[in-house]
Computed example of a mutant assay.
Amino acid sequence: MDAGLGFAITAAFVWGVYIYVLKRSFSGYPPAALTVLLNSFAIAWYFPVMITQTDFSGDLIDSAGLPELGVVALTVITTAVAFVLFLRAIADGDVSYVTPINKVVPMFVLPLEILLLGQFLTSLQVGGIVVATFAVYVANYDPGGFFQPFINAARSRPAQLALLSAMCYAVSDIGKRVSLQELAIPETLWVPTLLFGVAVVLLPSAVRNPPTAIREDVPKLAAGGAIVALGEHTTTLAFAVLPASIASPVINTQAIIAVVLGGVLLGERYFRIRLVAAVLAVVGVTLIAI
C-alpha cells in the first residue's frame, strides 16, 4: 500500500506538469493527432523497458479470453475518448478552469467500484464526494447569484467536455484496476498496450485532421512522449496494487499542480478562486481515499 501511494503521488506530479505542457506547447494541434504522436514517442521510450522487464510466457496468452480482451478494449477506448475530450476542453478554456472539473474522476470511480467490484462506501467517502462536487461549484464561481456557477457550467462547452472526460476516465480507471489485478496483466506489458491501443483508436481521426507542421516540433514531441511514458508507468504501478478508489483520487490531485502552473506561468484569470477549487478537489478526493 505504501509503495502504491508513492507511485500514485509521483504520477500526480508527472501528469500535473503534463497538463501545463499540453496547454503551453501543443495548443494548436488537433487532439487526436497530438495523442497519436505523443503516444508513439512514449512507446519508443518505453520499448526497452518492455523488452527487458516483461515475462512473455505462454500462460499469459492462453488466459486471454473474450471477456479479458473486452475489458482491455473498453479501457483503451474510454482512455482515448477521455483524453481527446480533455484536450478539446483545455483548448477552449483555461487550464485552471477546466482541470478542477475534469479531475473529479473519483466521484464516478467509487460508485462504479461499489456496483461492479463490491467496494463499500464510508461516511468519509460520502463527505469527499460532496466536497469534490463543491469544488466544481467554486471553479465556476462568478458574482451574480448562488445558482450562477451552475448556469455557467451548464452553458460552458469546456466545462461540459471536462465533465464528460471525467466520466470516461472513471470507466478507464476501473478497467485499469481489473486488468492489472484481476487479470494480472504485467505492468510493463500494460503500459505499451494501452498507449498503442489508444493510438490505434485515434489514428483514423488523426489522419483526417493532421497537424500543419511537425518537423520543428520533434524535440517537444519527444519530450512530451517521455512525460507520457513516465506518467503511464507510475500510474500503472499504482493501479497494480491499490484499489481504483484509492489510486484515482491520489493521482487526480494533479489538478492543483496544473492550476498553479496555469495561474502563475500562463497568467490565467480568476487564479485565486480556481486555486481554492483545486484545493477543495484535493480535500474531497483525499476524504474519498481515507
Rank of each mutant, 00 (worst) to 15 (best):
A8G: 00
Y18K: 05
I19W: 07
G28M: 05
P31D: 11
A32T: 08
L34P: 15
T35D: 06
V36W: 03
V36L: 04
S40I: 03
F41I: 05
I43K: 02
Q53V: 08
L69T: 04
G70Q: 01
V71F: 08
V72K: 01
I77K: 00
T79I: 09
D92C: 08
D92Q: 14
G93P: 15
G93L: 09
D94M: 05
V98E: 08
I114Q: 02
F120V: 15
L124P: 14
Q125W: 03
A135M: 03
D142E: 15
P149R: 00
N152G: 03
Q160D: 07
L164C: 12
A166L: 08
M167V: 15
S179D: 10
E182A: 15
L183N: 11
E187F: 03
L194K: 05
G197I: 04
L202C: 07
L203T: 13
L203I: 06
P210W: 03
P219M: 09
P219A: 08
K220L: 15
G225V: 10
I227L: 14
A238H: 06
F239T: 07
F239V: 04
A240P: 15
P243I: 00
A244Q: 04
P249L: 05
V250W: 01
V250C: 07
N252C: 14
Q254I: 00
V264S: 00
R272C: 08
L275D: 09
V282L: 06
